[in-house]
Amino acid sequence: MGYFLQQLINGLTLGMIYGLIAIGYTMVYGIIGMINFAHGEIFMISAFISIITFLVLGLLGMGWVPLALVLILVTTMLLTAVYGWALERVAYRPLRGSPRLAALITAIGMSIFLQNYVQLLQGARIKPLQPVISGGFRFLSESDFSVNLSYLQIFIIVLTICLMLGFTALINRTALGRAQRACEQDLGMAALVGIDVDRTISLTFVMGAALASVAGLMFLLNYGVIDFYIGFLAGIKAFTAAVLGGIGSLPGAMLGGLLIGLIEAFWSAYFTVEYKDVAVFSIMILVLIFRPTGLLGKPDIEKV
């Protein structure tokens, strides 16, 4: 029982990270119908920006952890958002209205480019970081095992929930959110009624990158090591999460992320660690075969 609960906690934490990345995929897919393959690299870049900010603050003598975390969070979100914006402006906007394959190839090209860009600038070695938030609660102690809920996990879960509440309010209540939902339904029609479509799409990338950057910071805190290659696998799993939840649906992305995190945690705990990615991909394939619109997605009717 304790073991199960522990895996539940680990899986939820992991799932929150995937969910935050998945939102970026699902929003972009919802509006312009492309897989933003480079989104995983944006996540990776944000993890690097986080670690650099950490080190710089450490050199400046910033010792108080809560303030440091807030500063890092804000810096990383801002700087990563610029990357998201630039990515759309440079690589995707010129291709609007081109064949979908062209956009996908460009995205893959961008992904390769960004990976090597970071590798060139920061080196290929893994970057370790000492634990910043340590300690936690222990409960359900049995003879040799106790469930551990660390402060870090609480931080990740609380921060994600706060972000999700704020983000939902942004989408449902503000003018930007309205414009975004309109673009999602029909780009041409939205342009006709006076919505600045280019700006809305840019801001979508900015929001997606900002959320992914929070995930990057959490990943860094949770695992303590990053390298230039983390974006690929995390990106694919987050995309799987978006598909699982129903692509285009924001609550779906979060739900999918949580499910992927749980599957991964339980599979590693009860079966084999080596095949956890195979399990994730198999589930994605099964979902797509039996429920191609995902769990919360709208059916996609194709007309001739």
Partner: peptide, 18 residues
């Protein structure tokens, strides 16, 4: 090498999407 590879992919696609 791979940096240029990625950049070439993007450039060609923007220049000749087909």
């Amino acid at each position: 090498r791979m940096l240029a590879f990625g950049a070439t992919m993007v450039t060609i696609m923007i220049w000749r999407p087909r």
